[in-house]
């Protein structure tokens, strides 16, 4: 493929920081149960858009950031997001041509995979109170938010010439 000069790393980092901000914004208890996985969604977008730049290590870094942000076990989200990035990387070509509805389903599965992985770690250190079914709710909300977020991030990518 044609070699292009990478640009716009700052814009990518800022979208991740904003996703982290959304992830800890105080919400009422009832809504907090369905809080979408913003960082996972942003990661999936960038992997699909720039597979030659954003990959497994970006997932690891974003996950580590989330670990410190939410005070979970170090490595919990790092491992989960690495796996999500890898799967998204493996199927980014198909994801690009999928119909919106198909994309939403795949995003649901991806976010669910990430959440379950981090649930397993959380459970291993004895810090879960809710049954694993509750993981599905954030995954569902995340999937529903995928299309709007996709539009916003695509605008960011074009506006700030991220390549």
């Amino acid at each position: 493929m044609r070699e292009r000069k990478a640009s716009g790393t700052g814009a990518i980092v800022i979208t991740f920081l904003l996703a982290g901000w959304l992830a800890i914004l105080p919400l009422p208890d009832a809504l907090a149960l369905g809080r979408p996985e913003w960082l996972t969604l942003v990661l999936i977008y960038w992997v699909i858009a720039l597979p030659h730049r954003v990959g497994v290590f970006w997932g690891f870094g974003a996950g580590l950031f989330q670990d410190v942000l939410t005070g979970s076990v170090l490595g919990q989200h790092a491992v989960a997001l690495s796996v999500v990035a890898y799967i998204a990387l493996a199927m980014h070509k198909r994801l690009r041509v999928f119909l919106p509805l198909q994309q939403v389903v795949v995003v649901f599965l991806l976010v669910g995979t990430g959440s379950l992985l981090s649930y397993i770690v959380q459970n291993a250190v004895g810090r879960t109170l809710l049954p694993p079914v509750w993981v599905l709710l954030p995954a569902l909300v995340s999937a529903l938010l995928w299309r709007p977020l996709f539009a916003v991030l695509r605008w960011v990518r074009h506006r700030f010439l991220v390549r």
Binding site: V56, F57, G59, F60, G63, V73, L74, G75, Q76, A78, V79, S82, V83, V121
Partner: peptide, 10 residues
């Protein structure tokens, strides 16, 4: 590498 690193961190 990420998985090994993550596990060691945990």
């Amino acid at each position: 590498l990420a998985l090994v690193l993550g596990t060691v961190l945990m």
